[in-house]
Amino acid sequence: MSEEITVSQENGVLIMTIDRPEAKNAMNKAAAEAIAAALDKLDSDDDLRVGILTGAGGTFCSGMDLKGFLRGESPIIEGRGFGGLVQAPPKKPLIAAVEGYALAGGLELMIACDLVVANEDAQFGIPEVKRGLVAAAGGVMMLPDQIPERIAMELALSGEFIGAARAYELGLINRVVSGSALDGAKEMAAKIAANGPLAVCVSKQIVKESRGWSMEERYEKQAQLIGPVFVSEDAREGAAAFAEKRKPNWKGK
């Protein structure tokens, strides 16, 4: 794994830490490649249930490495997008643990995650316009899907930041913590990892995809996805564990 990213795992959770604190964890090509590789591991390893993306040194990610940009380097992976993530999120749940700044490409990495836990002092924004650029890694397209359009427009056109309290109020983040965002994300991940892995992944898929389904086709499309879950070994195990008052032993099949 690249030195730009540190990866560890515990209790079924894969923790990916952008480790470029001297550059405020600005995203470069090596870091993007490492994130893409780590996400492949998350989805392919049956022992892993949830991923967490965070940053070292008190900052989540300050965006694209502009020094690398000036050298002609791109932190975009073909088919995967910025940071190896924004255009191809994992099938399994991914939580962003945000300390400090999630700006520009850093915010775009964050909104590509499924859930967000942030420290109360965190700051969020897409200030690309201040540099004559556009938040092209999903910011101007995806942010209006997650917060009111007029607020997304203000952030995109002004380049100004908002704090954690405002981000929570807008529904941009799930939880605000006074201590470690990573600890808060681990707590959230543990609750997800305790559930049936097939059901979790299909639930995520339906939440993500169903917004594009017409009213007429919603239940039919959902049935196609949940059918295999309801006849799985895990479904029987979940029912048996409930009846026997014990924790389920999930097999992911």
Results as ranks from 00 to 15, higher is better:
58 G>T: 03
94 L>D: 04
53 L>P: 00
31 A>W: 15
91 K>Q: 15
27 M>K: 04
40 D>G: 08
88 A>N: 15
55 G>P: 14
69 F>A: 12
91 K>F: 09
94 L>V: 05
85 L>E: 14
92 K>H: 12
81 G>F: 11
33 E>N: 08
98 V>T: 08
63 G>W: 03
72 G>F: 09
83 G>N: 01
27 M>W: 05
71 R>N: 13
90 P>G: 02
48 L>V: 05
89 P>C: 13
56 A>K: 15
74 S>Q: 10
45 D>T: 10
67 K>V: 13
51 G>H: 04
91 K>Y: 07
48 L>E: 11
78 E>Q: 01
35 I>Q: 06
26 A>T: 10
52 I>Y: 01
102 A>F: 08
85 L>P: 11
50 V>Y: 07
51 G>D: 04
50 V>M: 06
65 D>I: 09
51 G>L: 03
87 Q>Y: 13
95 I>R: 03
37 A>P: 03
26 A>E: 01
102 A>I: 15
24 K>I: 02
59 T>Y: 15
23 A>K: 15
98 V>Q: 06
48 L>C: 11
24 K>Q: 12
80 R>E: 09
100 G>A: 08
96 A>L: 14
55 G>C: 12
43 D>F: 00
28 N>C: 14
30 A>I: 11
64 M>V: 11
79 G>Q: 03
68 G>A: 15
45 D>V: 01
75 P>E: 02
23 A>R: 13
102 A>L: 15
90 P>I: 04
25 N>M: 12
28 N>W: 05
24 K>P: 03
99 E>Y: 12
36 A>D: 06
92 K>E: 07
33 E>W: 02
87 Q>I: 09
70 L>H: 15
90 P>N: 09
89 P>K: 10
58 G>D: 06
57 G>Q: 03
89 P>I: 14
99 E>G: 09
58 G>W: 01
89 P>R: 07
69 F>Y: 10
47 D>E: 05
98 V>H: 07
90 P>E: 04
97 A>R: 05
45 D>F: 05
64 M>E: 10
31 A>N: 03
61 C>W: 02
55 G>L: 10
81 G>W: 14
39 L>A: 02
67 K>D: 10
48 L>S: 05
84 G>Y: 07
80 R>F: 02
46 D>C: 06
95 I>E: 00
52 I>K: 03
80 R>G: 12
24 K>H: 10
27 M>G: 02
50 V>D: 01
55 G>H: 07
32 A>S: 11
68 G>D: 12
48 L>F: 04
23 A>I: 10
85 L>R: 06
92 K>S: 06
30 A>W: 02
47 D>A: 07
62 S>C: 08
26 A>Y: 03
81 G>R: 09
58 G>L: 03
68 G>H: 14
67 K>R: 02
96 A>C: 13
53 L>V: 14
